[in-house]
Amino acid sequence: MPGKSISDESTQKRPQARALRRVEAEVETALKTPIDRRGFLKRLGAAGATATAAVATGGCTTSWDTFFQKHYKEMTDEDKERVFARIEKEAEKRFGRRVTVSDPGPLDGVSFAFCISLSLCNGNRKCVHACVEENNQSRNPAIQYIKVVELDRGTLNLEKGTAYYEGDSVPAADKVYLPMQCNQCDNPPCVKACPVEATWKEKDGIVVIDYDWCIGCRYCMAACPYEARRFNYREPQVPRADINPNQGYLSNRVRPKGVVEKCHFCLHRTRNGH
């Protein structure tokens, strides 16, 4: 898992939170080392006391208001207005950027589909990066929706391919490239799996997630046959300058920690005809 830095701008302002972050970083380094490392318990003991004190005063990550927030489908227009305003305020506090959270609905008589020409894909992964930039995905740890698998020409055995290819240029000789992301299934197993209806298929075919409803059980990840879902194992980190301020509630707003996300077909663009 890359990256250990867990600083972010808002908490830097509060000394107590800063102390807590430091303890966390320390403990986490200790926790991630193999079990037989000798210094572990000692370090944990030292950090534990500080952490307990910090947590006791540091407070919850959830406010009362968000705790009882309704499911997206049950929100009235006023509810949405209030919730969106809160998310905008939080984003401004955390990133110092003004963002707008919108909620474009599915259009009548529109059903989305996408095509990829495998004979044209040369494996340069520009789409992966464009997607990350558009959708405010965490840069650290890196979360990407699209995975490009490099395969030997003439085979489709994915186990023998790799998504970690490197080199000076693409395409490599005798290789083909298979980009994979959410296919917005007609009969999505992830939607069946979710125990709390936090993910569903909209009438225009897009499978969406209410990030404020997801409990983070990751059962949808086990169910997905295309490995399209990602989990936020920690608070997503996006540099201030890289924030895309044009955000959708069900699409590219910065995700909370501990929830699942996935390709949402850029619905904040596609539903507006972009």
Binding site: M1, E28, T52
Partner: peptide, 12 residues
């Protein structure tokens, strides 16, 4: 308690 603060990143 640490896992609650940091997230499931404390797991492997």
């Amino acid at each position: 308690v640490i896992q609650l603060r940091v997230g499931l990143a404390v797991t492997n």
